[in-house]
Structures are given as structure tokens and as C-alpha cells.
């Protein structure tokens, strides 16, 4: 029971790390980016290729996945995404669905359609007893890394100059521009960083979430749930939403394997209808 709870937390942490970039895209630019999962997939495949073909250490793969995917994000933001910030939502949806389709087919072509496996370092395999609870070491590792990242993110947002610029830009882009903040530069950097985190999450998650070419489609809804249910006004909302979703999904699949996903979607729909601005937003229900 507690093991399941812990697995759920690890899962939720992963979801948050992947989806936090999406929350910023949505909150800052009001851009609906359905292709966010493709960045996570890229991180996963980078790790698979580096480890399985070139024998690179798993620990080294994680920062590489982050950096490469961040660079990829910066490239796409500068060339494509930037043009669509003021476009209608329909265009944004079409564009990002197009990207998803392209990434799915491209990965299928390059890597084949099978599930990819990575061989974790031996010290991350197996279980450890903590306070009498059996906990997977790898999940412990994920939870630790993600917790460090969450704290770091919170500190960057709260304490640094860049963080205050970002918060100003999210609150009111026009005012921020008036204050001399270069909103598009802030956003380019944030987009790259968010993509990088998704890449890192994808790399770490390959073992837990599974990795095949359909990854962006399979998990698109999960990332969107984190963002829409959590709201985009703070980081706390998506974080709590991700934890809840992670626990609910793991528990649901364990206890009610027949109807697990159905319940998640159902709860999401009900939640959106009752609280269209997100579960944790201040505006609340209208």
C-alpha cells in the first residue's frame, strides 16, 4: 500500500518535471503546445542511443539529454513556435499535432517501433527497505533528483532576477515589456529550459513510463491534465496535480486494472467542467 503510494509519488514527480515546461508555455504565451511530449521522447531516445550503442554512463546521459533537448527546444522556438504566439488556438493545435505526428513517424523510421529498454546501473536496481517499506531504488533516485529540481526551480523563480522577470512576464506581458523586460528573450530561455527538463524527465522515465514512438501521443493527455488541472498561475498547482495524478494512476492500475484510465479521464472532465481555471487557481469556479 505504502509502496504503491511511493511509486505514485515518483511517477508524479516525473510527470511534473516533464510538464512544468508546458505550464510555462501555456501561462506565459497562452500557447497550446500538444507536442511537448515529443521533447521528453527525444530525451529518452538520446539516452537509449548513448547507453546502448556507445556505452555512455547513465549518469552522464541525463545532463546530455537535458542539454541536447534544450538546444533542440531553443532551435524550434526561434524558428517555428515564435511565429505562432499570437495565432488562433486552432492553428497552435494543428501545428503541434503536426509536430507530434512527424516526431512519431520519424522515430519509428529511425529506431523501429519496439519498446526501448535501458540497462540501469546495478546500484539503482532492486529494492531497499526504508522504515520497513520496500522501495525501488530507482524510484528513490528519481524522487530525489526531482525533489532537488523542484526546490531549485522554486529558488530560481523566487530569488533570482531572471525569476522575477519571468513572474512579471507571466502576470502581465504588456506591463513587463513596459518595465523594459525583454519578454521574448525571457521566453526563449524558458522554453529551452522547459524542453530540457522534459528531455531529462524523458531520459529518467524511459524505464518507468516506457519508451516507444507513440510516447508523445500516449502521454499528451497526462501532461495536459497536469497543466489544466493544476492551473498555470503558480508552480504549486501543477506540482500537486502531478502528484495526485501519479498516485491515482498507479493506484488505479493496481487496484482497478479494468477501469484505471477511464476514471482518470472522467475525473479530468468533471474537474474541468467544475473548475475551468484549474483546481488550485485563485479565480476558482465562475
Amino acid at each position: 500500500m505504502l509502496t504503491i503510494l511511493f511509486d505514485g509519488v515518483a511517477y508524479g514527480m516525473l510527470l511534473f518535471i516533464i510538464a512544468v515546461g508546458l505550464a510555462i508555455t501555456l501561462g506565459l504565451m497562452n500557447f497550446i503546445n500538444l507536442a511537448h511530449g515529443a521533447f521528453a521522447m527525444a530525451g529518452g531516445y538520446i539516452t537509449v542511443v548513448l547507453m546502448n550503442r556507445y556505452g555512455v554512463s547513465f549518469y552522464l546521459c541525463l545532463p546530455i539529454a537535458f542539454l541536447v533537448v534544450a538546444a533542440l527546444g531553443a532551435l524550434l522556438e526561434g524558428t517555428l513556435y515564435r511565429r505562432l504566439y499570437s495565432a488562433p488556438h486552432l492553428d497552435q493545435v494543428l501545428f503541434s499535432v503536426g509536430l507530434v505526428f512527424m516526431s512519431v513517424a520519424a522515430v519509428h523510421y529511425l529506431m523501429g517501433g519496439q519498446q526501448q529498454l535501458i540497462h540501469l546501473p546495478p546500484e539503482l536496481n532492486g529494492r531497499t527497505e526504508i522504515f520497513g517499506i520496500g522501495v525501488g531504488r530507482y524510484r528513490l533516485f528519481i524522487t530525489a533528483v526531482c525533489a532537488v529540481l523542484v526546490v531549485a526551480l522554486q529558488l530560481v523563480l523566487a530569488k533570482t532576477r531572471f525569476g522575477s522577470q519571468l513572474r512579471a512576464a507571466v502576470d502581465d506581458g504588456r506591463v513587463a515589456r513596459g518595465l523594459g523586460i525583454n519578454v521574448s528573450a525571457v521566453f526563449a530561455l524558458t522554453f529551452a529550459f522547459g524542453s530540457g527538463l522534459a528531455g531529462l524527465g524523458g531520459a529518467m522515465g524511459a524505464e518507468i513510463l516506457g519508451l516507444d514512438p507513440n510516447f508523445p501521443l500516449k502521454f499528451m493527455v497526462y501532461f495536459l491534465i497536469v497543466v489544466t488541472v493544476g492551473g498555470t498561475s503558480s508552480m504549486t498547482g501543477p506540482f500537486l496535480a502531478a502528484l495526485l495524478l501519479g498516485i491515482a494512476d498507479v493506484a488505479g492500475k493496481y487496484y482497478f486494472p479494468q477501469i484505471g484510465a477511464f476514471v482518470i479521464y472522467g475525473v479530468m472532465v468533471i474537474m474541468l467542467v467544475l473548475r475551468p481555471h484549474g483546481l488550485f487557481s485563485r479565480e476558482g469556479a465562475r
Binding site: G98, L99, F101, M102, S103, V104, A105, A106
Partner: peptide, 9 residues
């Protein structure tokens, strides 16, 4: 699927 995606983009 790739080409359909490209058409969309």
C-alpha cells in the same frame, strides 16, 4: 503519418 504531420505544420 510523417507527411501528414508535415502538411499540418
Amino acid at each position: 503519418m510523417f507527411w501528414i504531420g508535415l502538411v499540418l505544420v
